[in-house]
Each structure stands twice: as C-alpha cells, then as structure tokens.
C-alpha cells in the first residue's frame, strides 16, 4: 500500500473546499485516513458524501489537494482499481444474477476474466450470498442487496473501501450483520474501511477512529476510545425500590442522576462502592447491574458533560 511518507496516511485532504454555486459543502477540510476503520459521522448535509466523492475522484475539489494512495485520483484513474465504493443509494441491476454482476464489476476493475469469476464466487461466499448467487438481484431482500453492494466494493480486493451509510434501511438484525461484515472487512480481510453514517451507535460499535463533520467542517477527529472512555460516574440498575435507593444515596450525600435505564452515581473512589452497597441494603433494592459509565458518542453533539448525570437532577 502506498502511504504519505511523513504521516503514514493512505488518503489525505489538504485544505479542501468544495463549493456548489452558493453552497459550501466542505470548507478548508484537513483530514487524513490511516489503516483501520474510520467513521465519518455527521448529520445529513454535513459533507460526508462530498468527502467520499472527492476521495474517489468523482468530483474535483474547488480548492485544496487530495492524495489517495500517494496519487492524485483525478489525474490518475488507475488508482481507483485499489479503491472500493459502496454507495448509499440503489445501484444494482435487478435483472442480473449477483455472480454475473460481480464478475463483470471485477473485470471493470481490471481483473482478467477467469480471475474475476473466482473472485466473484469467493467474495459472495464471504458476504454470505454464495447459495443465492445465481438468482436475479431483483428477487433479493434489502439485506441481501446491501451485501451485494458491499461485495461489489470488495470483489477486486481493494486496499481501501469507502462505505456510504452501509446499514441504511436495514432492520436491527440486518444492521448487526452488516456491521459485523464491516468489522470483518478490516479485521479479517485487511482492507482499510472509511465508513460514513449519521448513526453514532453504528460508528461506536464498528470504528477505530472517528471524524465528525458539521456544516462542512471537521468538528472533531480522533480515536473512538478517546470519546468513549470511562467517566467518573457509576451506573447502577436495580430491579425495584428505585426511589428508596435514590433517597438512601442522597441521604449519604452522594450526587445522583436518574435516567430511564438506571441511576448515575457520581464519583469513582473506593468509598463510593461502600456507600452504594449500604444504600442498596437499606432500600432493599435488588441489584441488577453496576458498572463504570462510558461516554457515548452522542454526547459529542448533545454536549452532555462528563458526569453523565442529566442536568438539574441532583449533585454532590
């Protein structure tokens, strides 16, 4: 794989601006993508799809520089033989069987015909569609179509695959399967993934790194673990007598926040566990779960503080 020597980045955007008439889709965006799974997170219109299209060389930036695997993708379309792309929208010819379509796409990516056939069959096996590979894609369910879309992005064995909302339109089980496949794409296949989504839970579950785009600017960028680190809050769930338990905690001077799922107790020192144990005994509240609370990516947008307690619900 070709990387930028100084940073080890596979793809870089340097002060990229993209303007459509009066609308600025991206404003002086500096970004680099390294090996692993990177989530591009943002609301609709934040600039995720524009970023992906610029990286693929489908649209030129208004200003700034773009390097993909060490090359300028708009000047050298051959770089695209090392890239895979799974669009958000429908893109499959409904009358063609998946095996034939994938074989064709592998050939269009530059693979010789015999190798393309082998890769098509292998890739369909990896995404779990081997048995249905000769059926026309018009007869597939939404989940199967998403898998074919992923398969066509992988069939030529790219170094990097860009996935635009890969779990869009799937039911919870289908979403889990798709996110598993995305994880597998890097962890087992060794293909670097850039994955756009507006759902934080998807990014949190799948990605190593995250870039948050807001209004065409990079709002935040870093390791997912940094954003989901343990907080100084203990999360306690009880099976009954919750009000008595909260009163018992407050009586002991503990700052408490009450949410839908359980009780957030502020603090992380050893004494706090003893206070919680005593309060549980006093309130006769059966304990279901007690664990340090992790920050959620949603807080990047909602601005909930580190304490995790909902504002105005008590304090130490």
């Amino acid at each position: 794989m070709t990387t930028t020597p100084e940073t080890g980045a596979l793809m870089t955007l340097g002060k990229v601006t993209k303007q459509y008439a009066a609308t600025v889709a991206l404003h002086e965006v500096d970004l680099s993508f390294t090996e692993g799974i990177t989530g591009l997170l943002g609301e609709n219109g934040a600039g995720k799809s524009t970023t992906i299209k610029i990286l693929l060389g489908l649209i030129p930036p208004t200003s700034g520089s773009v390097r993909v695997l060490g090359e300028d993708v708009t000047r050298n379309p051959l770089v695209r033989s090392r890239l895979g792309y799974m669009p958000e929208h429908d893109c499959l010819p409904f009358e063609a069987p998946a095996a034939e379509f994938l074989c064709h796409m592998a050939e269009v990516s530059g693979l010789p015909a015999t190798r393309a056939r082998m890769r098509a069959a292998d890739t369909l096996r990896h995404v779990g569609l081997f048995e249905s590979r000769h059926r026309p894609m018009g007869t597939y369910s939404t989940g199967m179509k998403q898998r074919v879309k992923l398969a066509q992005a992988l069939v030529h064995d790219p170094d990097i695959v860009l996935l635009d909302e890969p779990a869009a339109g799937l039911d919870p089980a289908g979403r889990d399967d798709m996110l598993d496949l995305v994880r597998k794409t890097y962890r087992e296949f060794g293909i670097t993934v850039v994955f756009s989504s507006h759902l934080m839970s998807d990014v949190e579950r799948t990605c190593d790194r995250i870039t948050v785009l807001q209004g065409g600017r990079v709002a935040r960028s870093g390791e997912v673990a940094e954003y989901t680190a343990e907080t100084r809050t203990l999360f306690v769930e009880v099976d009954g007598n919750r009000e008595r338990f909260v009163s018992a905690l407050k009586a002991r001077g503990v700052a408490v926040g009450v949410g839908k799922g359980g009780v957030a107790v502020q603090g992380s020192d050893e004494d706090l566990f003893d206070l919680v144990r005593d309060a549980l005994v006093e309130a006769e509240a059966p304990l279901r779960r007690m664990a340090p609370r992790r920050r959620e990516l949603a807080e990047l947008f909602t601005g909930v503080g580190e304490d995790g307690a909902e504002p105005g619900r008590g304090g130490r």
Binding site: P77, L78, S81, H104, E107, V108, S109, G110, L111, P112, R115, R119, D122, H126, H156, D157, E188, F189, G190
Partner: peptide
C-alpha cells in the same frame, strides 16, 4: 481458506473498456 488477498494482474483501463464493451 479464509479471505485471500488478490495478487494477480490488474489490467487497468484496457480491461475495463473491454468488459464494458462485452457486457
């Protein structure tokens, strides 16, 4: 055999054009 990386030839635009023509 798990996932196998592709190490064969990549014939670029010529193959791509031929594939679109054949299709």
């Amino acid at each position: 055999i798990r996932y196998q990386r592709y190490g064969g030839p990549r014939e670029g635009r010529r193959r791509a054009r031929l594939a679109v023509y054949k299709d």
